[in-house]
Amino acid sequence: MQRTIKLLALAAALATAGAAHAHSYWMVPSSTVLSAPQWITIDAAVSNDTFHFNHRPLAIEPVVIVAPDGSKVAPANVSKGELRSTFDVKLEQKGTYRLELVRAGIRASWKEGDKPKRWMGNAEAFAKEVPADAPELQVAETISRLETFVSVGAPAALKVSGKGLELQPITHPNDLITGEKASFQFLVDGKPAAGVEVTLVRGERRYRNAQDEIKVTTDQDGKFAVTFPLAGMYWLDADVQDDKVSVKAAKQRNLAYTATLEVLPQ
């Protein structure tokens, strides 16, 4: 299985080499460690320079805010600007809030005469809208998860959904501090994912010349550890390809995980 993942990852890397510089997307909360219930604001954008909104706003309609008790909280003051989207959340419970944007679906491309066609949607629509015998039909399933965490009072344990690529914290994401080792585990469909390449980039990208990314690979148990050298907001990203598709026409499944983590100084 691991070999399959690696081979597919390689194939995908080759196939998408041109897209290696695709823009990253992110959500940045105004605070992540809170000592009392209060409002927070989230900025969300698509850009190359980590946490500088200078390209496009992120479509935040699908964002789900999960309260510590599992209930869903509605965002307030939602607005989409030219460069960023923003919304507020009133945090009233103690524990950890998860803000997530999960996108799952099928991507297809084919030729209609000389023209390339691209399609995105769910499995049901796929069966209806994409001609099964289309020339040069390429189909892939995708599940991508973008998330960030905010705790009021003591951080609480986080549960994964068991679908797609997910981060299972060993060190709580709201308990990160410079100079102390933080550990996490990557799961695919709830099972440990070995050999996942993880990239961490600190924000304020504009104020340094190099990307200064931290690269780590998960071990046999899907675990990895990192000691953050500097305080700040970090963008964590990992991508995995496998062949566990649910739609027959799809050859591969692309899984992506992205999170924003705040690291505080000692």
Binding site: V33, S35, A36, Q38, S151, G153, A154, I177, P265
Partner: peptide, 18 residues
């Protein structure tokens, strides 16, 4: 609330306050 800024005592908040 006066407790809103308690997390600014970062170490204490992390080790005990929270």
């Amino acid at each position: 609330k006066g407790t809103k800024w308690l997390a600014e005592l970062r170490q204490w908040w992390r080790k005990s306050g929270r």
